[in-house]
Design a protein around this nucleic acid. Structure first.
Lengths: 175, 175
DNA sequence: AGCAACACCTAGTGCGGTGGTAGGATTTGA
DNA sequence: TCAAATCCTACCACCGCACTAGGTGTTGCT
């Protein structure tokens, strides 16, 4: 499993906020009920989003949360980054004081970086690109469309997600 | 952490095998010593690679492991898939009996797939593409080059990995 | 004033997976 | 016959994840 449930819950929470009118506070309880998620845990999740200035909040009665800026201006890189903390493909990925990604395997006797560095860098890049090019607005739109389609027919609802995206059935099954 | 140490050890093991002459058995102990990895644990790792027909083995004295086919014909998708088992960005990703990726969150009252599906599909795609387009031969070449460079100078050894690849310093730091 | 509905905070906890270790059995070459 | 190697299974300690528990602070409504 690549992302923890914090990431999933957080993304679903953000989508739910994006579906509401801007600036209108929505209570966590409403979201927890709608998504079927534990309220107390959602509090911890939304706290990270707030610290990252992705959502704003109002306390007291009729308080709640709303998006800090337009959904089109929020990328999944922002959201997942705030929720998951560091996203590194391996613990091998540390960075020294010069902000340079470097490998933690001591190249003893000075035989360069470990060979896996190239691979992890590429994987990292693939993930980050996916996250950076997906905005919250897209997910909200996707959510709205799915809802509409399933209301009319109970048929397929995926093949035509967004131009530039491949809805391929990608998987690695071995285990 | 996205990949477990099984993946890392396995990739390093494969690179080590790729650096040797083809068909020549190399003992696990030699690899464990060279890479500084626990031998007994490597046994479990290499067992997965063998079951996936990526390496072949010979028992008894002077036995060992070697690549089952040319390093250029082995992608990291093969290797990591064999080691890591299923690579799904979320447990949300299950597939029904029709081999279709579907979301496990029951769309109760039929309101379509959960909105995160689009995101996870893209991330999945980004990862898989990275893995599929990286061959073991590339890593072996990278390893050889790094070794050569660090022998002459103790300077930079990353910027020029492979054409078509961005060696960008990508990271998400929040936590 | 008082209550209810919220946000907000901290500490604890059960469980499963990760990352090994232990101890063997089997096969092969010298 | 021994040593070197693969091969196999069971076990275990730790740690992070996914929560739960139990509060405090703030606001609006009546």
């Amino acid at each position: 499993m690549i992302f923890s449930s914090k990431a999933e819950y957080g993304v679903r929470l953000m989508v739910e906020l994006g579906r509401q009118q801007p600036e209108l506070p929505v209570s966590l309880k409403a979201i927890a009920d709608a998504e079927g998620l534990p309220l107390a845990y959602l509090e911890q999740v939304v706290a990270r989003l707030r610290k990252a200035d992705l959502v704003m909040s109002a306390r007291g009665a009729h308080g709640g949360y709303w998006l800090a800026r337009d959904a089109a201006e929020i990328t999944m890189y922002d959201v997942v980054g705030a929720l998951e903390g560091t996203i590194a493909p391996m613990e091998c990925f540390v960075h020294d004081q010069m902000e340079r990604v470097v490998c933690s395997h001591q190249p003893q006797a000075g035989n360069g970086p470990c060979a896996t560095k190239l691979l992890w860098t590429r994987v990292q890049g693939g993930i980050v690109r996916s996250l950076q090019t997906t905005t919250l607005a897209e997910l909200v739109e996707f959510s709205r469309r799915s809802e509409r389609e399933s209301q009319s027919t109970a048929a397929q609802a995926d093949g035509d997600a967004t131009p530039g995206d491949d809805g391929a059935t990608l998987e690695i099954v071995t285990a």
